[in-house]
Design a binder for these strands. Structure first.
Length: 275
DNA sequence: CTCCAGGGATGAT
DNA sequence: ATCATCCATGGA
């Protein structure tokens, strides 16, 4: 067992993995297993130190593991500066406090786009199931210790999948959108990598033209896959609006869950509130 | 603008 | 146990 240690200040692994940006990591013991691109990885956190261990990759040219992990978890983002730039209102303050150490993972573009097409009108638990099902059926199997993990399904693989196979992954009405978009990407008609060179506005326009992608999902992909961290909501949220947005959503989801738990304990209080 | 499209999780009864 | 409601939405 060969473990590598990586210093990771101002980082919270669990919050980062469970805040609704990526959906394929599984809790195992004190850590998580998943894939970073093609590479199967186990990662666990103790204080400011990550302990990581990789399995065998097949496609990726091997780079040193610490660099891969540090980049994946965005350890190079200046988090203190980012949080400092958030507006100072009560809601934002609470979110910033709650989400301490949450970093926005720079995701592989296709993985991010496809996942968000699958995510419309789905809750996090659902998206996780879909993501797992797609990986298991259409991804490539990798092994880390005694755990099986799966790479994200490639555009050509999804493009050639039958509608029934996709529906079996609980995709529902998203099936056609995912398949159509997979075909556009697979054929080169939509070149996600080349789009990196586009301006924010132009990139958004291209994304919105894809089946199943509207303004909301386009923003998510802009933020998570193209690292346009401050592109939207900049007027109020400042330079790092994307980060602010993510913190607010995660905090709100967790707060809702907490209210739910309270209600089940004390059913007479807290009736009928929604904003 | 309205309406609808999976289905699992979650809460209410 | 069963029933209703919800869901980081997009397209018709």
């Amino acid at each position: 067992m060969k473990f590598t240690k990586i210093r990771a200040p101002a980082f919270d692994l669990e919050k980062t993995l469970e805040s609704g940006q990526v959906f394929h990591w599984q809790k195992v013991g004190d850590g998580f297993v998943g894939v970073i691109g093609d590479l199967p990885v186990y990662v666990e956190q103790r204080g400011n130190v990550l302990t990581v261990r990789d399995g065998e990759a097949v496609r990726s040219p091997r780079r040193p593991l610490p660099g891969i992990v540090a980049r994946y978890f965005a350890l190079d983002h200046p988090l203190a500066e980012i949080c400092d730039s958030f507006p100072k209102d009560p809601v934002m303050n609470a979110a910033r406090d709650f989400c301490h150490g949450l970093r926005i993972i720079p995701q592989p573009k296709w993985e991010c786009l496809a996942t968000f097409i699958c995510s419309s009108m789905k809750q996090v638990a659902h998206i996780r199931q879909i993501s797992m099902a797609l990986g298991k059926r259409f991804g490539e199997q990798r092994r880390i210790d005694d755990h099986l993990v799966y790479t994200f399904a490639s555009p050509p693989r999804l493009a050639q999948a039958s509608e029934k196979e996709l529906r079996d992954c609980k995709l529902g009405y998203r099936t056609k959108n995912l398949r159509k978009t997979a075909r556009l990407v697979s054929s080169g008609h939509a070149d996600l990598e080349a789009w990196s060179a586009l301006s924010d506005a132009e990139l958004r326009k291209q994304l919105c033209a894809l089946p199943g992608v509207g303004p909301k999902m386009a923003n998510c992909v802009l933020l998570f896959a193209y690292e346009r961290l401050g592109e939207f909501s900049e007027t109020y949220f400042g330079e790092h609006g994307g980060y602010a947005q993510q913190y607010l959503f995660h905090h709100a989801r967790m707060a809702d869950a907490a209210i739910g738990r309270l209600r089940s304990i004390a059913p007479t209080s807290e009736r009928n509130e929604r904003s």
